[in-house]
Amino acid sequence: MCASVARRLVDARVVVETPEGVDFRFRIAGPGQRLWAWSIDSLIKAGALAILWVVLLMLGAIGGESGLQAMAGLATIGVFVSNWFYGSLFEGLMNGQTPGKRAAGLRVLRTNGTPIDLLTATGRNFLRVADALPVGYTVGLITMLLTPKLQRLGDLFFDTMVVSEQRSPTGRPAGLTKNVEPLARSECSRKFSVPERTLAIIERLFDPERILTEGRREEIARPLSEELRKRLGWSEVWQTEGNQYEFFQKQGYKHTRFLLRVLKTFAVDDAPGGRG
């Protein structure tokens, strides 16, 4: 079980099938992103309550001691609402986002990818009481680590997940091929164009969401690199025996570098959207 959980965690993606029969993916938000959103929300709550108390008590002071007490009662109800309904109201009415989640680019969704309703939002936020025990959301963190969709108790009982909506850049990853030269015509003895499908595989190898060590990446790159080298008639000869980590280090990750050069040479940045 541990291995399969780990594999899914590294990917941090959830596939949802739409009624149209298409699979699409969500990126699950990690504890760090959620902590960030939570911190922003906590600040907003504290600020709003401070202002509420000051304003109400100033109003109450006009009515003497009795007015002061009445306004303190009203402010206590404000505390109650912010304690129990801040998250519910925002998430329920603003399509799964509190101000903090919006700032952090997160959204709460049902696990089938549809928006949550007010009741669901209320439930998952009420259960914070249980998730926060004994200190600092320990229970919530533990259940998040045990579930592939990183759900705390509130998410499990009300069938929700928190996804990251930071749009993936749609252009070719810019920094990736910065430090390599494109292949020169003179280096290759044969004419061959690398198909888009192969370029996509190379890109996937360098996807930052897949956590690979350099040595492991080099190991994976080798078969593809050798085949491409043959087809392009690339002249330089390598020694490729063994697969020790030290070996790759000594070689300076030649296969990885070669694949990046191929990417730089053949990939045309024509993805839509224009953001890169």
């Binding site: 949802v16 993916r25 959204r107 499908r197 996509a200 890109e203 993805a271 839509p272």
Partner: peptide, 19 residues
Amino acid sequence: EWGSRLEDYLNDLVAGGHN
């Protein structure tokens, strides 16, 4: 398999529309 960037872009569009 026309490139993961293109796929990501369309994936975002579908996710937005679905929502």
